[in-house]
């Protein structure tokens, strides 16, 4: 096992898959291309932008409290010899199941995790299966980046729409403006492309996460 080191990234993640053991902080590293995760590993994808993807191997020395998820304070197998381990002072996470939504792919579970008050949506699936699917996609040679869906970052009312289907946009171009709490927020294109679909019009109320524009 690699030495313990706390992860302190500046960004939520860079989209690469890291590997961790379930009940300890650390032991992470990028997966070698041909190495499949163990049969019991679980892939957790935190839906941040970009997502945090971690394959977790079941190396549990102990069963954590059934409700508290990884209560690492209780199960930390390798306390930092230099003093109190950073993680042991952290509050445990709260894991809440999310009712399955229609159209959710079978074999994929969704949970909400609250860590230090931060709320994340996390999808869970067998890591081996996810890895196989990814490999199949790679070998198929499809360079699919796929269409990008721009979603409402907060609830509000659409004030103006600047684009129409078929428009070519540069990254950073204004797509629409969203009025919330008496402020107008401009929604910008995350990448260059062609507008595939505009799902809103001025005056429409949107909730957080609603689809606004799809860029092809």
């Amino acid at each position: 096992m690699e030495p313990m080191k706390p992860v302190r990234p500046d960004e939520p993640g860079d989209g690469t898959v890291t590997r961790a053991s379930a009940f300890a902080d650390g032991g992470s590293g990028t997966i070698p291309p041909r190495d499949l995760p163990g049969p019991d590993a679980i892939r957790a994808t935190v839906e941040t932008d970009p997502p945090v993807v971690v394959d977790v191997e079941p190396t549990a020395p102990d069963t954590p409290h059934p409700e508290l998820g990884a209560n690492m304070a209780a199960a930390d197998p390798d306390p930092d010899p230099g003093g109190v381990h950073e993680e042991s002072r952290a509050r445990p996470g709260l894991v809440l199941p999310v009712p399955p939504s229609r159209g959710q792919s079978p074999g994929v579970g969704r949970v909400e995790v609250v860590i230090d008050g931060w709320r994340f949506e996390v999808t869970l699936e067998p890591a081996r299966r996810a890895a196989l699917r990814e490999r199949a996609r790679r070998t198929a040679g499809a360079s699919v980046s796929g269409p990008r869906v721009v979603r409402a970052p907060l609830p509000g009312r659409i004030a103006r729409v600047f684009v129409a289907a078929g428009d070519e946009v540069e990254a950073g171009a204004r797509l629409c403006s969203l009025e919330a709490m008496k402020m107008e927020n401009e929604i910008l294109a995350p990448a260059a492309g062609t507008i595939e679909r505009v799902g809103v019009e001025p005056g429409v109320r949107v909730e957080q996460g609603d689809e606004l524009v799809v860029i092809g």
């Binding site: 992860v7 990234p9 939520p12 993640g13 961790a20 379930a22 902080d25 679980i42 892939r43 957790a44 994808t45 935190v46 941040t48 945090v52 993807v53 971690v54 977790v56 998820g69 990884a70 690492m72 993680e87 952290a90 445990p92 996470g93 894991v95 949970v111 995790v113 860590i115 931060w118 994340f120 996390v122 869970l124």
Partner: peptide
């Protein structure tokens, strides 16, 4: 977010 992934798994 990193801790959330491990907690969920």
């Amino acid at each position: 977010a990193q801790r959330a992934a491990r907690a969920a798994a």
